[in-house]
Computed example of a mutant assay.
Amino acid sequence: MSQQVRAVVARAKGQPVEVVTINVPDPGPGEAVVKVQACGVCHTDLHYREGGINDDFPFLLGHEAAGVVEAVGPDVTAVAPGDFVILNWRAVCGDCRACDRGEPWYCFATHNATQKMTLEDGTELSPALGIGAFAEKTLVAAGQCTKVDPSARPAAVGLLGCGVMAGIGAAINTGAVTRGKSVAVIGCGGVGVAAIAGSALAGASPIIAVDIDPKKLEQAKRMGATHTVDSSGTDPVAAIQELTGGNGADVVIEAVGRPETWKQAFYARDLAGTVVLVGVPTPDMKVPDIPLIDVFGRGGSLKSSWYGDCLPSRDFPMLVDLYQQGRLDLDAFVTEEIGIDDIEAAFEKMHHGDVLRSVVLFS
């Protein structure tokens, strides 16, 4: 039998979201039903509402979540009812060519729940990133549930489900930031600030934060940036070079997802340095016009970071432990705690850069 719960749905492109009743089926083979405790409002949810991902409306929004497993389907052994979990959108298959070569963080066949959640009239919903956690309960693949310390604060650790993990992973996993490396981060929203926190955790220095918003630069300093550059009035490439002895940074992380800022990142890195693209571009954007001789002559690596190249089963428990030890301030990412009816207002605040994360709490 299915359950009926309240949830947030985007019915059409650009239209305000609605709080409606949806049907959540009992878990089938390989599936789990999770009672959601907290879910962050991520920019990806706004992308879904605006039709920037695809046009498979209606969408069940929400994906940065933590909660408690309520029920599991047949053959599920990795999690059990009562487990406190962070939801992830990389349920590793274990059988694809990436998994077979020992790189499951690149899994090319990640999967979601087989059954569909629906509106009351039976219309099938498309869950954001295969999760759909702006809901009192949600149905996911059991592999999307990662067990962590149950004493951790759901509003904080749930953010590892997307943006915070993407930023920390872009620095540590994709960019291979280590002690003594210099880092610049262009774009200091939630993902960019998380990249700064990850760089600080790894011992990088200097850590240079670049943005056009003074409020975001202040947030970046609180999370570990040693220097800030207001690129609304300063050439960020020249500023980064000046702060790194004229050389450029060893790792430059682009957390905006625009051609012009990616080009800045390209020229702001040192010879043989690394550029990491973690900002998500729109389908119409093109690689900027850069002479091929510059690509060859500067050497190094140009990388994209998928979900911070994370392996949830490895990275989530480790980062939660660091949070519990006071070494990773996940609480600093939670700007406000809101209810399920406040998501449209949270989108507006996010659009204006007023929050790192609004987090929906469920009773």
Rank of each mutant, 00 (worst) to 15 (best):
T234Q: 07
A170Q: 06
H63E: 02
K116M: 10
E31W: 02
L330N: 07
A65D: 07
T21R: 15
L328P: 14
H43S: 07
G73P: 05
I207M: 08
C310W: 06
A109G: 10
D321S: 14
T335R: 02
A152C: 10
P16W: 01
L61P: 00
Q3S: 12
S358T: 03
L271N: 14
K303N: 13
G28I: 06
W306G: 12
G297N: 03
I240D: 05
E344K: 11
R357T: 12
A32D: 07
I196N: 06
K216H: 06
G163S: 09
G308F: 05
A141M: 02
C93P: 12
C145H: 12
Q264M: 01
T274H: 01
Y267L: 05
S304R: 12
I168R: 02
A170Y: 04
E254P: 04
M285K: 15
A197S: 13
V36I: 14
A195C: 07
I212F: 07
Q264I: 09
F347Q: 01
K263T: 03
P127Q: 01
T274C: 10
S301E: 14
S205I: 09
M318D: 14
I186Q: 01
I293D: 12
P27D: 11
V8E: 02
L271F: 12
D26F: 10
I172S: 13
G233N: 11
L328Q: 05
E70N: 06
S205A: 15
A209H: 02
E136R: 01
T114S: 15
G122R: 05
I86Y: 07
V148I: 13
N173M: 06
L361E: 03
R179E: 14
M350D: 11
L311K: 13
S151E: 13
H111D: 04
D315R: 11
V177P: 00
V79Y: 04
N54R: 09
R153C: 00
P259D: 08
I53T: 04
A91H: 00
G102Y: 11
Q219I: 01
A346Q: 08
L302Y: 09
